[in-house]
Design a protein around this nucleic acid. Structure first.
Length: 281
DNA sequence: GTTTAACCCTGCACGC
DNA sequence: TGCGTGCAGGGTTAAA
């Protein structure tokens, strides 16, 4: 399940490889779920036509959303959902199963969107004068942006009076953190997932604030997490390496790296949650 | 207003 | 071997 670090790795690779390239044509394939992927558009032809003859000028990221800016002033927004992959391929390469969209460049191959579970989406939109992206206005602050200040963070924690894990995963508060990194961040901060956000002392809030930055930056450094049950790969089809650095996620029963207590697993909002009963209080 | 649960979907692990 | 079942998860929506 690609979260902020995986999408950021992809963004950096795309920035290196596809900026300046011109799109020759785009095909929304006749797969069962292709129209589900472009669900915000009613007609596939509109989507394809808007993505023909345009040049890619800039790649940005907002939370788990990838923003591909075109010289037509439109923006192609991509969300990978759980199992989405963007892959740079040779035009002659065989088309793998669940390839829903193929963007062909005038020179240098194709960008393919592959998504077995079809939870992801792609849509075309525009930005207003302030740079707000139509369709993404409800997203909270990106945790790697300067706008996530200590003041804003600690203030919201007290205001919201909710459980820490819920808050970390709330895309309207901060965007980009999902199940893997919320568990890893809470471990790094030494805090339990079910602690109330308005019940932390200043030192704990500070630890949590720092852990968000540190865990996400570290995960980007290791090119994201390719855990057991997921298929995250980068633009070139390579696995990430942060799964080897995980401290609690998918490590139920394995001794904690810090204190050797077996990592515990519980259900939280219908999701698996991992924590160390000793290190996290 | 907040929280929970169901839904979408496929691949895989498991039990019978 | 083959079938059915349950689980995994992000975001949205509806219900509690």
């Amino acid at each position: 399940m690609p979260e902020l670090p995986e999408v950021e790795v992809l963004r950096r690779d795309l920035e290196k490889d596809i900026i300046g390239r011109k799109i020759k044509g785009t095909e929304v394939r006749a797969t069962k779920n292709a129209m589900r992927i472009i669900r915000r558009h009613t007609r596939r032809k509109d989507f394809e036509d808007a993505l023909a003859g345009v040049k890619i000028v800039k790649i940005e990221r907002q939370g788990k959303y990838l923003l591909i800016f075109l010289d037509s002033k439109q923006i192609l927004v991509v969300h990978l959902g759980m199992s989405g992959q963007l892959k740079l391929s040779k035009t002659s390469a065989p088309i793998e199963n669940h390839t829903h969209v193929i963007i062909t460049f005038t020179v240098g191959g194709q960008l393919r969107y592959v998504d077995p579970r079809s939870f992801g989406e792609m849509f075309l939109t525009t930005a207003d004068e302030e740079g707000n992206i139509e369709g993404l206005t409800k997203l909270g602050i990106d945790p790697l942006e300067d706008a996530l200040t200590w003041q804003y963070f600690s203030g919201t924690l007290v205001d919201r009076k909710t459980k820490l894990k819920t808050l970390l995963m709330d895309q309207k508060f901060i965007c980009g953190i999902g199940n893997i990194y919320s568990d890893e961040i809470l471990f790094a901060a030494g805090l339990r997932h079910d602690r109330n956000s308005d019940d932390l002392v200043a030192a704990e809030v500070r630890r949590l604030y720092r852990a968000i930055q540190e865990v996400l930056q570290e995960a980007i450094k290791f090119r994201g997490t390719s855990a057991d049950d997921e298929q995250y790969v980068d633009l070139y089809g390579k696995l990430g390496e942060f799964q080897n650095q995980l401290k609690v996620y998918q490590r139920e029963g394995v001794p904690c790296r810090r204190c050797r207590t077996p990592v515990a697993r519980s259900r939280w909002s219908n999701r698996s949650t991992y924590h160390c009963p000793q290190c996290q209080i």
